[in-house]
Simulated scan of single mutants.
Amino acid sequence: MVQALEGQEIAALFPFETGLGSFMRVYEIRTDAAPDFNPADFSAAWWLTPAELLTRTKAGEPAKGDLAELVRRCFP
């Protein structure tokens, strides 16, 4: 069963305006419940602050293409 979560949209990004690779809508969801991930789709998961994510990607950890730029734009 998919859990219903309420979120607030914090960004709507368009490639022709931002240079990012795709159209994106970013939502912030606040909850104490762990998401119900499909284990077949994920090998691991971490809870990171935006700063921690940027530190890891800057150190060379792999991430989806535009993730670091998306975080910089949404969490300055």
Results as ranks from 00 to 15, higher is better:
2 V>E: 08
2 V>C: 05
3 Q>F: 09
4 A>T: 12
5 L>I: 02
6 E>L: 15
6 E>K: 14
6 E>I: 15
7 G>N: 11
8 Q>V: 13
8 Q>G: 08
10 I>A: 00
10 I>E: 06
11 A>I: 03
11 A>G: 09
12 A>E: 12
13 L>R: 03
14 F>M: 04
14 F>A: 05
16 F>K: 05
16 F>E: 14
16 F>Y: 10
17 E>N: 12
17 E>G: 02
18 T>S: 15
19 G>R: 01
19 G>K: 04
19 G>L: 03
20 L>E: 10
20 L>D: 12
21 G>I: 00
21 G>K: 00
24 M>K: 15
25 R>N: 04
26 V>P: 09
26 V>M: 08
28 E>H: 10
28 E>D: 13
30 R>Q: 11
30 R>K: 10
32 D>P: 01
33 A>Y: 11
34 A>L: 04
34 A>K: 01
34 A>V: 04
35 P>A: 13
38 N>K: 06
39 P>R: 05
39 P>F: 08
39 P>N: 05
39 P>C: 05
40 A>P: 01
41 D>N: 11
43 S>D: 14
44 A>C: 11
44 A>N: 15
45 A>E: 13
45 A>S: 13
47 W>H: 14
47 W>T: 03
49 T>A: 12
50 P>C: 05
50 P>D: 06
51 A>T: 08
53 L>W: 03
53 L>C: 13
54 L>M: 05
55 T>E: 15
56 R>W: 09
56 R>C: 07
57 T>D: 01
58 K>R: 15
59 A>P: 09
59 A>Y: 14
59 A>M: 10
61 E>K: 02
61 E>P: 01
63 A>S: 13
64 K>L: 09
64 K>A: 15
66 D>P: 11
68 A>P: 10
69 E>R: 06
69 E>A: 07
70 L>E: 06
70 L>H: 03
71 V>N: 06
73 R>F: 07
74 C>T: 14
75 F>E: 02
76 P>R: 08
